[in-house]
């Protein structure tokens, strides 16, 4: 029996070969960034190649290993360039966005899940519909409101408000779905014991919803940490750039500082990639749940 099943399966060796090819495709751009980052220079080329280069010269030039290992890009991006400041801006904005966004989403998702009130359905549906509004259509009025009316251009508050509010619909739907699964009996018995609504919410419901809150927080944080175009539109002072705007700034202009970019990109992505890999199971289930509903 087992032999017949074995014959039904593909041999594993060619499968591994195919997978290895795709591993190279996947990893090469990442190794390339590491190579440039640790090369100690601003050049796009990994090694200099002679005028009439041979096959081997070219092969060496695409091998993701720097000619000289050096961490100077990492040290000077923090000391000579305002990258530390940009990273700080990103961190402040992302953390504040997470706190504000999760707070707003938790309270309103709880109300949507537990209370029946006029406007509930309209509210939930309008949150869904808002997800379809095209970004550029929103950006012009948002720019006028945030920068010209509220005067919040190049401030933390402006971006924090935009990020946390735009993350609300996703977070509310996600949290509401989770709150719906928490049995009401718990709250009812606490109510019998004389606990107030606020106590029930903070002491009973929120602790039970921890996994969902964590995913919401991660989503808000990643949105804020990775967002590029709104930050580029709203922040026009160099010392208020966020890390994405700063990284684009390194290689966007006339002078192309690929070494700084690579070092900065590595520093910026490592925490977010680690968080993602660590929590991907929850994120994916959240995304697909949202997709099914949407």
């Amino acid at each position: 029996m087992s032999t017949s099943r074995r014959s039904q399966e593909f041999p594993h060796l060619p499968l591994h070969l195919i997978l290895l090819v795709y591993v190279v495709v996947t990893l090469y751009p990442l190794l390339w960034v590491f190579t440039i980052g640790f090369s100690g220079q601003q050049n796009l080329m990994i090694v200099d190649i002679p005028a009439n280069a041979t096959f081997l010269d070219r092969l060496r030039a695409i091998m993701p290993w720097p000619a000289h290992l050096s961490v100077s890009n990492f040290t000077s991006v923090f000391t000579e360039q305002p990258f530390a400041r940009w990273l700080l801006n990103s961190a402040v904005i992302a953390i504040a966005t997470t706190v504000l966004g999760v707070f707003l989403a938790c309270t309103s998702a709880y109300a949507f899940s537990r209370f029946r009130f006029p406007g509930r359905r309209v509210g939930l549906m309008s949150f869904l519909v808002s997800q379809m509004f095209p970004g550029t259509l929103m950006m012009i009025p948002l720019y006028i409101i945030i920068v010209q009316v509220l005067g919040l251009g190049s401030t933390y508050l402006g971006l924090i408000l935009v990020y946390s509010i735009t993350a609300i619909p996703f977070c509310v739907w996600m949290l509401k779905g989770y709150f719906d699964t928490i049995p009401r009996e718990l709250e009812e018995s606490a109510l019998m014991d004389g606990a107030s609504a606020a106590v029930i919410f903070y002491r009973i419901v929120l602790p039970l919803a921890k996994p969902a809150v964590a995913v919401t927080a991660l989503f808000s944080f990643m949105t804020a940490w990775n967002e590029y175009i709104q930050a580029a539109t709203f922040m026009d002072k160099i010392n208020m750039y966020t890390a994405p705007v700063g990284l684009k700034f390194f290689v966007g202009g006339f002078e192309q500082q690929w070494g700084y970019f690579a070092a900065g990109a590595i520093v910026t992505s490592i925490p977010i990639v680690a968080l993602f890999l660590f929590l991907q199971k929850y994120l994916i289930s959240g995304l697909t749940a949202g997709a099914v509903k949407g």
Binding site: A105, S108, F133, L142, I165, I168
Partner: peptide
């Protein structure tokens, strides 16, 4: 708070 924010920064801009 959430509805107010959405009105101000999502629906009004739209």
């Amino acid at each position: 708070p959430a509805i107010f924010g959405m009105l101000l920064l999502v629906f009004l801009p739209f």
